[in-house]
Design a protein around this nucleic acid. Structure first.
Length: 805
DNA sequence: GTGCCTCGAGTTCC
DNA sequence: CTCGAGGCAC
């Protein structure tokens, strides 16, 4: 590297050149490092360059680049580590807080296994360490990969950092060929305190709690820093293994210990729920003297063969339970209640609190759920918190649900200010002023403004670009808010015209005067808040504005619209090109992502996938929804009429004439057979019922929504969906019925396993049934199967068929 | 009609 | 992560 001039003697031009060079070198070093290539510079050199970059930026703040390595504006920092797909998913555990829930767990397991209440059934109990989960992969005894849990499917590769942890062996003797060891990385109380002292002495930021310190230390880009941090590791589980570790949970943990891992010394075997509860009490009593944070006790079925039979629910194993310690509580003052508007128009109240520490984290916001929760009722109208309502100015008790989401739990009436009035939940949308209506039986109040409402429009756009939807790199929530505020995009279709409009200079999609006109409609307090926010956005991209003057803001937005994205501060040539390229790439979009991205109520990822697989391509999908629309209209009218008839009948004390009422509505406005067929097909899709179907048809029938959807679709090339891949086992896609007494498995178990193999399990035999599994005592179903010529086999043949003996 | 179970929607802090 | 509610089996 060339001789470096002292930062103080650099000219502005020199500083600019050097920052550009540093950005480039550091970016390449990052790629090399995270791509597991041989890094072209040493860690020390890398740090020196980063320091130099920071010093120059400190000296010339105006020259700080949008792609500054110190800040990385617009780039997701989580991209810093390479992604790793777990060979076996890392699941979370079901939670319990009450003793009875532990007894229910034992019951549930017994029921599933068809065990009597007296049959012996052992569980392990161990402290639940409050750290972060890590999966370590060993091949032929060598540590080849360490990955964080991430979302359970995909984590981050932190191998280099994991190697620096003393408790993690890099080489195992006598391990199976492939072994994924799972456990918890944590920091002891003593080490945490010492680390914070060191951090404070060095003027660096201190950590809020050992858990954050451990997480922050493990996710260091520089393994040398991780090495300097006193991290520890307890092994308690495993993922992929080429040979079983043991026949029991306890045996497997002992095996991990023998292989050289630390395992928790408080791990014990329990017989039945009362022993588990006793163990829980014992561990809780020792909590304060353990020297590290734990947040509960984990129970697992000890017999691994039984674990296998129990299997998994969608996100949690049936054979394990986390019994959590009671959440930490704190009292603070409720300063204000703000209302947020979600993409479906839901008005959600958020508590603004005097900041308070709860469970090692400073909390200043908390959710208040909904209107009823504030009033002290649940959705059925029954009193919660003994019916105490929540008022602004109250002292409230806060806790972190599941140690994450802050919630308001209780109110101290003795400290209520004399002038505190009951909170009046708004009946108009705070963002657009439209009526906010609560439908019968619905817990939330919703803004009726639809696409008129700016809050809904922005939230819908954020949903549109979110990870499971279009996932456009370089276009996250922040960028969407910015482009929306600057009038560059107003609906999803605008995203796909943006590259071209940027080139031709037609960047505005609406008149900036609408922005200030909208501001005028807001109440004074919100208006100034809104205008300040706009001014801040403009200042962030280097456009100074007078935030008091709406006219000035309009001018500034107009002025900004004359600048190509590549020349706007915070974007730059590179990020603009990348963004436009990312947008182009997403014109080809899998159908299920497109359907999900539309943000139709009740249509999430799973339902979107079901619809895409059923209708295959975009034209068939839209045509089917359109055809079903008129039938949907009659269904809704009929439901309304029936509800009215029920009410009228109850009033008059007579029997409601339900079928007559329904028929009358259908006769009133005849619906084509085609429409009826389309509707029946739609609600016939598994997982889709009348309300999902109605949501789809009404959305498509709303003119504004429809124009937005059509404009979008015209710019895209949706990729047809493939039918769910039939797995290569003999029962995939088959409809199976179980009847008679099953001797080797319970009904629930049989069903879950069949479904896991891709079969559909039905309760009754029909022409659609492919296979009847009949145990002793099978009666009418076996007879019917014989009549229909449905293949019938016994339990053993079934087990052989699915390859389980 | 009742009771699972799963999915959808909304939320906080780092 | 939690809650409500939709869907579906019993």
């Amino acid at each position: 590297m060339a001789e470096q001039k002292p930062v103080g003697t650099l000219s502005e031009a020199e500083a600019r050149d050097e920052l550009a060079r540093l950005a480039d070198v550091l970016a390449r070093a990052n790629v090399a490092y995270h791509g597991d290539d041989a890094p072209d510079i040493s860690d020390a050199e890398y740090d020196a360059l980063k320091r130099r970059n920071a010093e120059i930026e400190a000296q010339f703040p105006a020259l700080k680049r949008s792609d500054s390595p110190t800040e990385m504006v617009g780039a997701a920092p989580s991209d810093a580590f390479a992604k790793v797909r777990h060979a076996v998913r890392m699941l979370s555990l079901g939670n319990a807080f009450e003793d009875d829930e532990v007894r229910e767990f034992d019951d549930r397991v017994r029921r599933y296994l068809n065990f009597s209440a007296e049959a012996p059934l052992k569980f392990t109990a161990e402290p639940k360490i409050d750290g972060l989960s890590l999966s370590l992969r060993y091949e032929n005894g060598d540590l080849v990969q360490a990955a964080t849990r991430g979302d359970g499917e995909t984590g981050e590769n932190v191998t280099a950092n994991a190697r620096t942890i003393d408790d993690i062996p890099t080489r195992l003797k006598g391990a199976p060929e492939v072994l994924e060891v799972r456990g918890e990385v944590y920091m002891s109380h003593a080490d945490f305190a010492a680390l914070n002292d060191r951090q404070a002495a060095a003027g660096a930021k201190t950590f809020a709690n050992p858990r954050n310190a451990a997480a922050g230390s493990l996710r260091q880009l520089d393994p040398a820093i991780t090495k300097s941090r006193p991290l520890r590791f307890f092994a308690y589980a495993w993922g992929e293994v080429s040979a079983p570790l043991s026949e029991t949970q306890k045996g497997a943990i002992d095996r991990l210990k023998a292989l050289g891992f630390q395992t928790n010394p408080l791990t014990a075997l329990c017989e039945g729920p009362e022993e588990m509860l006793a163990r829980y009490a014992e561990i809780e009593a020792r909590r304060a003297t353990l020297g590290y944070d734990i947040d509960g006790v984990v129970y697992k079925v000890d017999d691994l063969a039984l674990q296998e039979r129990l299997g998994f629910r969608s996100t949690t194993p049936r054979w394990a339970l986390a019994h959590k310690f009671p959440a930490e509580l704190a009292w603070t003052r409720l300063e204000a209640i703000d209302i947020q508007v979600g993409r479906t128009g839901a008005l959600s109240p958020v508590a603004r609190l005097t900041p308070v520490t709860v469970g090692g984290v400073v909390v200043s916001n908390a959710t208040l759920h909904n209107e009823d929760y504030i009033a002290g009722r649940d959705s059925r109208g029954e009193a919660i918190r003994e019916g105490k309502d929540i008022r602004i100015g109250d002292w409230v008790q806060v806790y972190r649900a599941g140690d994450v989401i802050p919630k308001v739990a209780d109110v101290d009436l003795s400290k209520r200010p004399a002038d505190a009035a009951p909170y009046r939940f708004p009946d108009t949308c705070p963002d657009c002023g439209s009526a906010a209506i609560r439908e019968e039986g619905d817990a939330v109040r919703r803004c009726t403004g639809g696409l008129i409402c700016p809050a809904q429009a922005v939230e819908k756009l954020k949903h549109f670009v979110s990870r499971p939807a279009f996932d456009i790199e370089g276009l996250g929530a922040k960028q969407v808010e910015f482009f929306y505020a600057m009038c560059w995009i107003a609906q999803p279709a605008d995203i796909f015209t943006l590259p071209e409009r940027d080139a031709t200079g037609e960047r505005l999609v609406r008149d900036p005067r609408e922005v200030t006109a909208y501001a005028e409609t807001l109440p004074a307090e919100r208006r100034s808040e809104y205008l300040l926010g706009l001014a801040e956005m403009l200042r962030n991209v280097g456009v100074p504005v007078d935030d008091a003057d709406p006219g000035h803001l309009v001018q500034a937005i107009r002025h900004l619209a004359e600048t190509p994205l590549a020349r706007i501060k915070g974007f730059g040539e590179k990020s603009a090109t990348n963004l436009f390229q990312a947008i182009e790439e997403k014109r080809q979009i899998p159908l299920q992502r497109l359907i999900f991205a539309l943000g139709i109520r009740h249509v999430g990822e799973v339902v979107a996938g079901d619809l895409a697989r059923h209708y295959h391509d975009w034209p068939s999908f839209t045509a089917a929804i359109d055809r079903a629309a008129s039938a949907a209209d009659r269904h809704r009218a009929a439901d309304n009429a029936v509800a009215a008839e029920r009410a009228a009948a109850a009033e008059a004390g007579r029997r409601a004439q339900i079928s007559q009422t329904r028929d009358a509505v259908w006769a009133e406005k005849p619906v084509s057979d085609e429409a009826k067929a389309a509707w029946d097909e739609l609600v016939g899709i598994e997982g889709i019922g009348a309300s999902v179907a109605a949501s789809l048809t009404t959305t498509f029938a709303q003119p504004a929504e429809r124009r937005s959807i059509d404009a979008l679709a015209a710019l895209l090339d949706p990729q047809a969906a493939e039918a769910r891949q039939a797995s290569d086992n003999p029962v995939a896609g088959k409809t199976v019925v179980f009847t008679g007494t099953l001797e080797k498995m319970t009904r629930a178990e049989a069903k879950a396993r069949a479904e896991a193999l891709g079969a559909k399990v039905s309760g009754s035999v029909s022409a659609k049934t492919d296979l009847l599994v009949a145990g002793p005592g099978a009666g009418s179903k076996a007879k019917k199967a014989a009549e229909l010529g449905v293949e019938t086999i016994d339990e053993d043949a079934w087990l052989a068929l699915i390859g389980a003996g």
